[in-house]
Design a protein around this nucleic acid. Structure first.
Lengths: 151, 151
DNA sequence: GCTCCTATTGCAAGAGGTTGCAATAGCAAC
DNA sequence: GTTGCTATTGCAACCTCTTGCAATAGGAGC
């Protein structure tokens, strides 16, 4: 389960980052951090709250969302919006990446870093626009759904 | 205000499309249609409801959303999700298009059709994936915000 | 004009998320 | 160990959107 170093280490590191910014270390934040430490990839806000409640039934949603805001500010995670507009959090050291979502079968893939780079370069050149990949979800229909639908 | 033909014409055309599908023409749908007829570009669900209420204070949100679903089904409009995940409707005969949204200043632009085409072709080639442009919002930072922030 | 079938409405409840505010509790300094 | 400042919390209310269900009302057929 642990990736590199024990989970307590990661949590302690975040605690220090918070303190260094004059922010505070509270039991509620510890709970959120612990949940995140054993989470990889994408989670929705609702899932996160549910898992926090499993650890501490007294968890309040607004506290979780506010903690997530703080963690995003210090760069520990990023949020985006899934195909249905619901909030989705991307945890951990994985590089930011976009998503491809099929409206037909509901499957989703991560965008390869080469494609992502091409996309970013394109917008950079044409608009001077810096794309935030973690916020990018491309919705459409995958090959399978297209062939199934229009032979 | 009127685009081509008088607004009543557009509304009547929709009425006939609905009837042709065995669907019904109701005062509530007429209200929504009238509001849409004088709307161009992007609207959020909430805005639409507000405008419907201006015409008919008895308007109920669920009715509006359900009407919008129906209208989307017959191809009269498309919905997507704005940068904050809120629903956004794109009205009228304009071709589908993606959006660029600056997280810094909140501005947003439409994607040029050439860029959009390039993007679609790219995903088509690499994944056989058909992008739904109307659902595409690219979030990032525009040239101005970038230069303002990192000189 | 009247009937009947059923699409649609209105309502109420619920899910996911946000916000304002008074009370609480970190933690730094003494 | 106390004190005091203020970041956080918990709560309650609110917003946007969805869903289930009984009651209503289009409109096709007679």
């Amino acid at each position: 389960m642990a990736r590199n170093g024990s989970p307590p280490d990661q949590v302690a590191a975040v605690r220090d980052q918070l303190r260094a910014r004059g922010l505070r270390w509270t039991p509620q934040r510890r709970t959120v951090l612990e949940v995140l430490a054993e989470t990889q990839g994408h989670v929705t806000g609702a899932e996160l709250i549910e898992r926090c409640r499993a650890r501490d039934p007294a968890t309040i949603p607004s506290t979780v969302y506010r903690t997530l805001d703080v963690l995003e500010e210090i760069g520990l995670l990023r949020h985006g919006h899934g195909p249905d507009g619901r909030e989705e959090f991307h945890v951990g050291p994985e590089p930011e990446h976009g998503h491809l979502h099929c409206a037909g079968c509901g499957a989703s893939w991560e965008l390869g870093s080469d494609e992502a780079a091409a996309l970013m370069t394109a917008f950079e050149d044409s608009h001077g626009f810096a794309v935030d990949l973690s916020h990018l979800t491309v919705v459409g229909r995958c090959r399978d759904c297209r062939t199934a639908n229009a032979p």
